[in-house]
Design a protein around this nucleic acid. Structure first.
Length: 195
DNA sequence: GATCCTTTGAAGCCT
DNA sequence: AGGCTTCAAAGGATC
């Protein structure tokens, strides 16, 4: 029951992982992260999946811990995920390295459209902007939304390529609970055991 | 400084 | 399987 290289649609899409890493580094280095990797992909041809990475400038921590090639054994270990898969956060590496979840379709839509709402000048608060974007998202046709679903699918695929064995559980329960949930007085015990 | 708000979707956990 | 919870982004507001 492999998690790798198979998207939710059941398609098998495999490409060179190290190449993806280089492209990932190249594109993400232009943002707030360090810029020392631009040389890596100086002449690299751009993979069809790469444009979506423009949306994903927060996946990589400032010091990318996986620049070394991921060996087949590591991939196999991750694939086996017998409860001991590598943890992409916390103590496993020097410093605090957290791999974020890949963005879903709506998040990608928000990233693209947020600035437009800002330019309109109607709202400045993110909560209000997100309400607007939520309405606009629901107003989109299915074909219009499919663009973002497709991007999100590729995003997840590439995320799996870059972080084999990573699981959303790695970041699960790491945030503080909301006040509204704290005041309910009734929540699953597993929410308390995290950390 | 930390958390909340607010949205949708993905994925985790529990029953 | 189904339901609930958490996290993903964003940045002003609030604590």
């Amino acid at each position: 029951m492999s998690r790798m290289n198979q998207n939710p649609a059941g398609e098998l899409q495999v490409f060179d992982r190290s190449s993806a890493q280089q492209q990932y580094l190249h594109l993400t280095s232009g943002g707030r992260n360090h810029t020392s990797h631009t040389q890596i992909a100086a002449n690299a041809s751009v993979h069809p999946l790469v444009p979506l990475l423009l949306y994903s400038d927060r996946h990589l921590p400032p010091s990318f811990p996986y620049s070394r090639p991921i060996g087949a054994s590591a991939a196999q270990q991750a694939d086996a995920h017998s409860g001991a898969h590598p943890r992409y956060h916390g103590n496993g590496f020097t410093g605090r390295q957290v791999v974020k979840k890949p963005l879903n379709a709506f998040m990608l839509f928000m990233k693209e459209m947020r600035h437009k709402v800002l330019e309109e000048g109607r709202e400045r608060e993110s909560a209000a902007i997100n309400r607007i974007l939520g309405r606009r998202w629901n107003a989109l046709s299915r074909s219009e939304q499919s663009k973002y679903y497709d991007l999100a699918q590729k995003e997840r695929l590439l995320h799996m390529q870059l972080y084999p064995g990573w699981s959303a559980r790695d970041n699960y329960g790491k945030r503080k609970r909301k006040k509204s949930q704290q005041t309910t007085g009734s929540f699953p015990s597993w929410t308390l055991s995290a950390g």
